[in-house]
Write a protein that binds this DNA or RNA. Structure first.
Length: 315
DNA sequence: ATGTGTTTACTAAGGC
DNA sequence: GCCTTAGTAAACACAT
C-alpha cells in the first residue's frame, strides 16, 4: 500500500474510508466540528479524486455521518444561520482504526443500545449518570452529580421532561444537548464545561457552575497536564497535513480519567487548542477508553504485534 | 429548488 | 460459512 503523502494519490482513490476522511476534516478544523459543506470542501480540496462523482460519494458520506455513532451532530447556535448542523467526533470514538489503515476500522464505534438511547435523548444527563457509575455509584441509580443536576431548575425546564423515548419535546438548544455531546472533549480540553457553555452562548446558572466545579475539580488539572505534555508534532504522521492523532486514545493523563481499560497507544490531539476566549471547544480527542464501545474482549492489535501506521505513530 | 439528514437495502471484502 | 465493516443507491422527510 502506498504510503500516504502529499499528492501521493493525485486522482486515485485515497486509501481512506469515508469515516476516516470525515474524521480528518473534523480534526483539522479549529473548532473540531464542521458543517457538512465544509467536510465536503475539505475532502475535495485535498483529494482530487473526490472532485468527481460528487453526488455519489457525498451521499455515502452523509450516510456514514448518520449511520455511525462516532459522529455527533451539534445544532447551530441561533446566531449561526446556515444549513445543517455541525458534525463532530464522538468523544469516545478514538482507537477506531485497525492496523494503521484508514480503510478499515478495528471495531465499529457503536453505542450500546441503552447508552445510545440515553446519549441521544439527553447526552449531558447520560454523562452524569455515567459519572455516577464511574464513581462507584449504584448501578441502578444515577450518580450524585445526576441527582444534583436534575434538581437544577435549568434542567427541569429542558432536559427533565424529555428522557428516553417518551417522545417528549427536546429543546434543540438545550444545554445538555450541546454540551453533553462534548462532555469528555470539554473535560479533555481542560476547559471547564461551564466556560464552554458560556462561550456557546448558553446561560450558565451559578448552581451548575458550582456543581460542576465540585464534581470535577480535576478539570483544571487536566488543562495543566496537557499543556505540560506538549507532545511534539511530527510532520510524517500527518497525511495531507492532517493530524490523525486525535483518532487514537490518549492515556497520558490517565490518573485524571476514569479507571477503564487503557488505550493501546498513548496519543494526544494537540491541534489548535482554543482558549477560553477563543472558539468553542469541540470534542477534542483526548479520548478515554470507551466505556460505551461495544467490546468483545479481544486483545489489542499491538499486543498481537500489529504495527501502528506510520502516519499515526508518535514521533 | 436545493441542501441536509435518516433510513433501508444490497453488495463486496476481509477476518475468524 | 458467518459476521462485521464499508461503499453505494435510493427513497423519504425536513430545513433553508
Amino acid at each position: 500500500m502506498p504510503r500516504p503523502g502529499k499528492n501521493s494519490y493525485s486522482d486515485q482513490k485515497p486509501p481512506y474510508s469515508y469515516i476516516s476522511l470525515t474524521a480528518m476534516a473534523i480534526q483539522n478544523s479549529t473548532e473540531k466540528m464542521l458543517p457538512l459543506s465544509d467536510i465536503y470542501k475539505f475532502i475535495m480540496d485535498r483529494f482530487p479524486y473526490y472532485r468527481e462523482n460528487t453526488q455519489r460519494w457525498q451521499n455515502s458520506l452523509r450516510h456514514n455521518l448518520s449511520f455511525n455513532d462516532c459522529f455527533i451532530k451539534i445544532p447551530r447556535r441561533p446566531d449561526q444561520p446556515g444549513k445543517g448542523s455541525f458534525w463532530a467526533l464522538h468523544p469516545d470514538c478514538g482507537d477506531m482504526f485497525e492496523n494503521g489503515s484508514f480503510l478499515r476500522r478495528r471495531k465499529r464505534f457503536k453505542l450500546l443500545r441503552t447508552e445510545h438511547m440515553a446519549c441521544k435523548s439527553s447526552p449531558m444527563m447520560h454523562y452524569f449518570h455515567h459519572q455516577g457509575k464511574m464513581n462507584g455509584g449504584h448501578h441502578e441509580h444515577p450518580g450524585p452529580a445526576a441527582a444534583a443536576v436534575e434538581r437544577l431548575p435549568h434542567f427541569q425546564g429542558y432536559g427533565g421532561i424529555n428522557c428516553g423515548q417518551s417522545g417528549g419535546f427536546k429543546h434543540p438548544f438545550a444545554i445538555e444537548n450541546i454540551i453533553g455531546r462534548d462532555y469528555k472533549g470539554v473535560m479533555a480540553s481542560g476547559l471547564p464545561i461551564t466556560s464552554v457553555m458560556h462561550h456557546l452562548g448558553y446561560p450558565v446558572p451559578a448552581q451548575l457552575s458550582s456543581v460542576v466545579n465540585s464534581m470535577w475539580p480535576h478539570v483544571g488539572m487536566l488543562s495543566e497536564s496537557m499543556s505540560a505534555m506538549q507532545v511534539p508534532v511530527s510532520s510524517d504522521y500527518a497525511p495531507f497535513g492532517v493530524s490523525m492523532k486525535g483518532l487514537y486514545h490518549h492515556a497520558g493523563a490517565g490518573q485524571t480519567l476514569p479507571a477503564v481499560p487503557v488505550p493501546i497507544k498513548p496519543t494526544l490531539t494537540m491541534g489548535p487548542m482554543p482558549g477560553l476566549s477563543g472558539l468553542p471547544s469541540g470534542p477534542t480527542q483526548l479520548c478515554s477508553s470507551s466505556s460505551m464501545l461495544e467490546k468483545d474482549g479481544s486483545e489489542t492489535l499491538e499486543s498481537k504485534g500489529n504495527p501502528i501506521h506510520p502516519a499515526l505513530r508518535l514521533s
